[in-house]
């Protein structure tokens, strides 16, 4: 799935207009626990989360997560945005819940991070 599809499906607002939205997303990951993201996400995944602190982006960077969707319209602080731009991690803010985001992206064909093998 293209990142642009993720933006459209999540009815998301782009928080990092400086970054390119031309990216392929291979899987989805729905989590608030950073260890979980590190353990189960796979490269080029989109992370759906309710957390907005800078560690989310750090975690994403280490785990090669390509984009993050913040649920419930949560606005991340400037530090989070700054690290994301620096590390080329695309940020989106969506009015939907993590459940709804997962459901709609899954229904649109985006599979789970561990669909084939555990990373």
């Amino acid at each position: 799935m293209n990142l642009r599809d993720v933006i459209a499906i999540s009815k998301g607002e782009i928080l990092t207009p400086q970054l390119s939205a031309d990216a392929e997303i291979f899987s989805g990951c729905c989590a608030d626990l950073m260890s979980d993201v590190l353990a189960y996400s796979r490269p080029q995944a989109v992370l759906l989360t309710g957390l907005i602190n800078p560690q989310v982006v750090r975690t994403a960077q280490v785990a090669d997560v390509r984009a993050i969707v913040f649920a419930h319209d949560k606005q991340p602080p400037p530090e989070t945005l700054a690290i994301a731009v620096q590390e080329n991690i695309f940020l989106i803010r969506s009015p939907m819940s993590m459940y709804e985001l997962s459901g709609k992206l899954y229904a649109a064909g985006l599979r789970s991070c561990d669909a084939d093998e555990r990373a």
Partner: peptide
């Protein structure tokens, strides 16, 4: 938090490590 690990991962990539190895070390 995480800055040191981010730098470690970046350094490994610059040194020519393959991305999977850099990711494991980063995690």
């Amino acid at each position: 938090g995480g800055n040191a690990s981010a730098n470690i991962k970046r350094a490994l990539l610059r040194l020519g490590a393959n991305p999977q190895l850099a990711r494991r070390c980063g995690i």
